[in-house]
Amino acid sequence: MTLLPLAPDVLLGVALLFTAWRALYTQALFPAVVFFVAFGMLLALAWMRLQAPDVALAEAAIGAGLTGALLMAAVARLRGRDEDRP
């Protein structure tokens, strides 16, 4: 029973490692960006669990939100370039 409070944290850690792995090793770029954004949101949750709400807020807004948007824009541009090739 003493392990029960630990379970959500372990689940969070495993999910973090899984999303990080998928973000790095997914071949298609768009799903990789989606995994990156999911990783950022989970990391924000992890910061909350570590009682660092300031870092969590910054991670959610900048790490997951804006970096995700920047990466999406980059993917859209790369796609446009690939279509240029014969």
């Binding site: 709400p53 300031d54 969590a56 807020l57 910054a58 807004a61 900048i62 939100g65 804006l66 948007a69």
Partner: peptide, 14 residues
């Protein structure tokens, strides 16, 4: 409380 210019700026940019 938690908050500040960087977080607010990121949200405004969003």
């Amino acid at each position: 409380r938690p908050g500040g210019a960087f977080q607010g700026g990121a949200l405004l940019a969003a």
